[in-house]
Computed example of a mutant assay.
Amino acid sequence: MSSELEHQDLILVEATPEQARMTNRNSYMSWGYPMLTIDEYIKLEEILANIEFASENLKVWILTSRKYISSSDTEPIIFSQCETYKRKALITLSSGQIQEEICYCITALFTPPQYRHKGYASKVIELLNDKFKFEYKSKFSYLYSEIGPNFYTRLGWKPFSHKEIRFNVDNKYLAPLENSELIIAINNSNLENVVNKDCELIKNDHKKLNKKSIVILPTKPAFDWLFQKTKLYSKFITDDKDSRLFGAIILNKNNNSSNENFNDELLTNFIIWNHDFKDNRLFIIRFRSDSPYKTRLLIQQAMQEASKFQLKQIILWNPDLNLFNISKSLNIFDGEVYERTESLPYLKWYEDDDDNVDWVLIEKYSWI
């Protein structure tokens, strides 16, 4: 670490609204250019920050010198910056006890080019960890890294294996699907019910685990935020591509329930997706299936949705490969499994010295 950093009185503070706008100006060339102008980028980030999920859970942090904070006449120099979001989570302890907790997701860690290679990003993470552990009394935080494995591992974060299955899309899946009468759409009228029932099932699943583990709980506001972010960053997509279908549920043949009245049995097989028009992909952000056959039907629905918008690929993070027997059950699809090299998941455990914690359901819904 440089002598410059060693002798500065650094402090991590929550950004004011004007400082938050400055963090967006700082990161524009990395995350907004060339798709957006700088004004468009700042405007969209402000819109996202005021959506329910972000307005209740987002904090923007800046690393600066204490001397700037003590002086009202000088705008602070931002040496590094990041954002954090509160998330609901479940923790299963070694004793089998289950606790519902608040955790924190760290994202958008950024150091302006002129301040890089001085240890400022590491200092942000160090100060955040202290804040989460001692001030907020959080048991853990997590993040997805775009900069490879070395940085966060060196800082004591635990990495997790991160696979994905990719399906190439063929327009032939616009044709009617077999057993389509078993499928109902997930839309605005039933999404919240689906998410709430899913959380109940996740809690029941978590009770069966016999080791220390965590799971991030899906919530309706978090899904809404992801959907809105995709829409805002797809400004060149016309209104007819503003899809109101968020996924699909497989119903039992003899069940006559309405879209708004699901029981636990009905929600053992469903899929929730998000359209990525920028990179021409359909992301499966939450997936629940109890058999390869049901998996096949759900992937067929995703194929049909992707074909409708001429998206060329479907991606699902960390699938249970027992449900994706590509050589048999899914042989009509061009599906392959890859080890991901981007958005690598990391966990920091604060509760005790034993960090042997498993992270369950590392799916796209927990990404921000």
Rank of each mutant, 00 (worst) to 15 (best):
L316P: 04
Q81E: 07
V194M: 13
K158M: 03
V13L: 05
Y33L: 13
Q228C: 13
K229N: 06
Y350F: 13
F287S: 06
A54K: 07
R21D: 15
S234F: 04
S55F: 14
I250D: 01
L174S: 10
S258L: 12
K211P: 07
F140E: 08
I299C: 15
M22A: 11
L330G: 00
L155P: 00
I186W: 03
E6T: 11
I214L: 08
D320F: 01
E100R: 13
S30C: 11
N210W: 12
F53Q: 00
Y33Q: 10
L174N: 09
S343F: 02
N190T: 09
I214H: 05
N129V: 04
K208D: 12
I77D: 04
S329M: 03
L12Q: 03
F227W: 13
N254Y: 14
L5I: 09
A306W: 02
F309G: 03
F79D: 09
S366A: 15
R66F: 04
S72L: 14
F246W: 00
Y104T: 03
D334R: 11
V337G: 10
T295Q: 04
K163L: 14
E342Q: 05
S2V: 14
G335F: 00
L63G: 03
P34S: 01
N252F: 13
I326M: 09
L201E: 05
T64P: 00
G247K: 00
N356Y: 05
D73A: 14
D334S: 15
D240M: 04
E45V: 12
E164C: 13
S234E: 09
S180N: 12
S71I: 07
S327A: 15
K86T: 08
K133R: 15
R281E: 08
G335C: 12
L226I: 10
I271V: 06
I214T: 05
I250Y: 03
D352I: 10
K118F: 05
Y136I: 01
C82T: 03
P112C: 02
K118C: 05
K328T: 11
K123S: 09
E192S: 10
Y142W: 04
D352H: 04
N57Q: 06
E52C: 11
N24H: 14
E135F: 00
E265Q: 11
E181P: 02
A89V: 01
Y33K: 13
R25N: 13
E135L: 08
D276E: 06
E265A: 07
N252T: 12
Q228V: 10
G148R: 14
M35F: 15
E135Y: 05
D73G: 15
P319A: 14
Q301S: 15
F262R: 01
L5D: 10
N50F: 09
Y142M: 06
V357M: 07
K229S: 07
H7P: 08
R116K: 09
L58H: 03
E52Y: 14
N150G: 08
M29A: 14
D353S: 08
F140N: 01
T268Y: 09
D242C: 06
